[in-house]
Design a protein around this nucleic acid. Structure first.
Ligand code: ZN
Ligand code: ZN
Ligand code: ZN
Ligand code: ZN
Lengths: 174, 174
DNA sequence: ATGGTTTTGTTATGTTATAACATCGCAAAC
DNA sequence: GTTTGCGATGTTATAACATAACAAAACCAT
């Protein structure tokens, strides 16, 4: 029996992140077209900002970026609802996820179905890897079911050290 | 091979909840004595308030209760830090857990080690059942490890319908 | 062009959490 | 028994996160 190659949910420290963002935006365009929903300029820009890093971004971080841009264009600033509405849209269309333990948002690495995502959060560098492991989902659902509980949504977040930071940490422990 | 009896993490709708609270407080007294930390009057009272229900309680809910009590005693009110400090103490001594997806707190059903807890949250009645299933913990740790990620803390929260509400829901679907 | 719908702007406010510094109260050291 | 140190609590102010409610604009279909 052959095993699927295990692909790390963490990107290499230096990768072509512009391409990474472009891919995410292209996927979003396609998905929204298919769903018949409108990825407006604002929503697309917010998604782009969220994808600015592979780390979680707070709503007010996004807001600050938007304000900067608009100020540069001599336009008025923006207010919290502008950002939260865009985030709501992106969330409900599965283009981003919310990290509950950080009150922050990350781009979804596999925006297709309405999955929940499972997150590995590095306490050192802040990067977040997304897992979507059906074994975990199933095990939790079945353990809950054994208690008579019917699960509709799972929040799975693990904090720790990402491969990169673990390696760096080991190095500095000489 | 004999199976351990599976005990529901949900209490019956009507149970001797005063005794339930007393048990929790006794356990807390014992644990704090053993750890050589001080379960002061305030901390003990906050724990008691958190145990007031088997549902999650917000910090400001607790604060309101404290204020009421103090007002009745003609004393001054209380301020947020009073509550948050007590909650921090209780959290770091494993006497309560924080539910990240609700910004709220619940009493720990098995306050012993520094475990994280896994929560089943009823979206209908708000009651929370605590699971501490080592299979889930291990599976997540090992899946993460396979990605080179070293987990130090897990946040596991499932939303859905508790047994009680599922039964009630089924009844009303005639 | 018109009218209805969706999106965005704007103002105000609600909710959750922490920083910083003052004070209190108990117990060990003197 | 007073002093002194320290952990706990009080107090004030503010930071950080999120939503309600209503107005204006942009969009789209007829
Ligand atoms: Zn990238
Ligand atoms: Zn890292
Ligand atoms: Zn009870
Ligand atoms: Zn319920």
């Amino acid at each position: 029996m052959t095993e699927d190659a295990v692909v790390s949910p963490f990107r290499p420290v230096r990768h072509e992140h512009d391409a990474c963002i472009d891919d995410a935006l292209d996927a979003a365009d396609a998905l929204c077209a298919k769903q018949g929903v409108r990825l407006t300029t604002l929503r697309r820009r917010v998604l782009e900002l969220v994808w600015g890093s592979h780390g979680p971004m707070g709503a007010y971080d996004i807001l600050d970026r938007l304000r900067e841009e608009r100020m540069r264009d001599e336009k008025k600033g923006a207010a919290p609802p502008t950002v939260y509405r865009a985030l709501d849209f992106l969330l409900s269309n599965g283009l981003i996820h919310r990290i509950e333990s950080l009150n922050a948002y990350v781009g979804c690495g596999a925006p297709s179905d309405g999955h929940a995502g499972q997150f590995l959060i590095c306490g050192d560098c802040g990067s977040v890897g997304e897992l979507d492991d059906p074994d975990i989902t199933k095990m939790i659902a079945s353990k809950a079911e054994a208690m008579g509980f019917a699960v509709t949504h799972q929040t799975i977040e693990a904090t720790g050290l990402c491969p990169e930071c673990a390696r760096r940490g080991a190095k500095n422990e000489n």
